[in-house]
């Protein structure tokens, strides 16, 4: 499984890319493989204030619906509208065009609690 070194990760399989005061969030290659074919994505609303570990999006595969969590406290500033027309982007490019939302982080220190690639690799047994 692909686990890029330049990203941070959560226990619940989101990846996080730092972009200044903002973070871009998606789900890992491991998560998309576990979920199987993604057929629907419910995106969070722009400007929504979210807390760490709050369920803010839903990714649905043929089999089941899975919650996507906010890694840290912040505000949703961008969502990936392309997923509405092509949810399979999450399967095909989990770390690229399959990103889900961008969060403006309240406190950058909160990011310290996230896993690095080595720790996430260990979690998924890869």
């Amino acid at each position: 499984m692909n686990v890029p070194d330049d990203l941070l990760y959560t226990e619940s399989h989101e990846w996080i890319k730092r972009e200044g005061e903002k973070i871009r969030v998606g789900i890992s290659d491991h998560a998309q493989a576990e979920l199987t074919d993604v057929v629907f994505v419910e995106l969070p609303k722009i400007d929504r204030q979210v807390n760490a570990k709050e369920a803010i999006a839903v990714v649905e595969s043929v089999k089941a619906a899975s919650d996507i969590y906010a890694p840290v406290k912040g505000k949703v500033v961008e969502v990936n509208k392309a997923l509405e027309a092509d949810p399979g982007l999450i399967n095909r490019e989990p770390f690229g065009q399959g990103w889900i939302y961008v969060l403006k982080v309240d406190n950058a220190d909160d990011l310290r609690n996230l896993k690095d690639a080595a720790a996430y690799r260990k979690q998924i047994g890869g």
Binding site: A33, T36, D37, V39, S61, V62, K63, N91
Partner: peptide, 20 residues
């Protein structure tokens, strides 16, 4: 195959993809 528990058995849920 991705193997999952089903009715007390370890069964394949998919090989390449459900839709495929």
């Amino acid at each position: 195959a991705k193997m999952v528990p089903f009715a007390g058995w370890l069964m394949p849920v998919q090989y390449t993809g459900i839709v495929d």
